[in-house]
């Protein structure tokens, strides 16, 4: 085959313009990710998808596939560092899985299970973050926000509303809302926005939908995220959104 690269020893075909992430997922190899959603432009900010190409680290979601390169993904070293990334996300915010409505459908939680994260390891930072439940249909729980920027991008690029933005910088970064009061209730957000469907964690939620699917019967309760994610990606290729 003309265009292939080696991924953990397996030959992966790719089309010009494809990223390593796209080609790998299309070939049935899962690469962990949180801030990336293949329906939208990649962002390479969470760094969970970091792989090595000829020994150098890159984010798979933005790295163009190049013929004959030697790519490593599922290695003990990379997975150990991915666990550390997840632990950092867990201590940075306030994540209480047992009482979170997103449990079982949460990509942060399921990635942690999938990568074998046993504990938070680092001391909690316990930030004070204001929740916003002002809107009748939508709730923003900043405690759970991992600053992936998906809602920012999708609201701006797809919904054309620019409801969200990341403000401040560094460890003080936070999600802000586009409205005179800074509250969701005064914004143009709607439950039908695409941005409302992309939050990988339980930060942006639609009200009165809680526990429609009981805990224990949710996507990642039944199968690991690696399996679900691959199936969704392949279904997407065939035009079937799950």
């Amino acid at each position: 085959m003309e265009n292939t690269f080696s991924l953990d020893g397996k030959e992966i075909p790719f089309e010009p313009g494809q990223t390593v992430w796209d080609a790998a997922m299309a070939a049935g190899v899962y690469i962990p990710h949180l801030c990336h959603n293949p329906d939208y432009e990649p962002h390479s900010s969470c760094r969970l998808c970091t792989i090595t190409v000829n020994g150098r680290p890159f984010a798979a979601c933005t790295q163009p596939a190049v013929a004959d390169q030697l790519v490593h993904n599922n290695t003990p070293e990379l997975n150990a560092m991915r666990r550390t990334i997840l632990q950092m996300l867990f201590v940075e915010g306030n994540h209480y899985c047992p009482s979170c409505e997103k449990s079982g459908n949460c990509k942060l939680q399921s990635s942690a299970y999938d990568l074998g994260m046993q504990d938070n390891h680092f001391p909690q930072l316990f930030p004070h973050r204001e929740p916003d439940s002002s809107h009748p249909d939508v709730i923003l729980d900043r405690d759970r926000c991992i600053l992936c920027g998906l809602c920012v991008r999708v609201s701006r690029d797809v919904d054309k509303k620019s409801i969200f933005a990341i403000a401040n910088r560094g460890i003080k970064s936070e999600l802000i809302v586009n409205s005179p009061s800074g509250k969701l209730v005064d914004s143009k957000v709607s439950v039908d926005d695409e941005a409302m469907k992309v939050c990988p964690v339980g930060s942006l939620m639609i009200k009165r939908k809680g526990f429609e699917v009981p805990i224990g019967q949710r996507d990642y309760d039944k199968e690991p995220i690696s399996v679900v994610s691959l199936r969704q990606f392949q279904g997407r290729k065939e035009g079937r959104h799950e």
């Binding site: 900010s45 560094g170 460890i171």
Partner: peptide, 20 residues
């Protein structure tokens, strides 16, 4: 820690953990 832009996880959180 003060100058991290906060975009990526390792730098945003890691610089704070190191200071701590």
């Amino acid at each position: 820690q003060h100058e991290s832009c906060g975009l990526c996880t390792p730098c945003r959180v890691g610089t704070t953990l190191l200071v701590n």
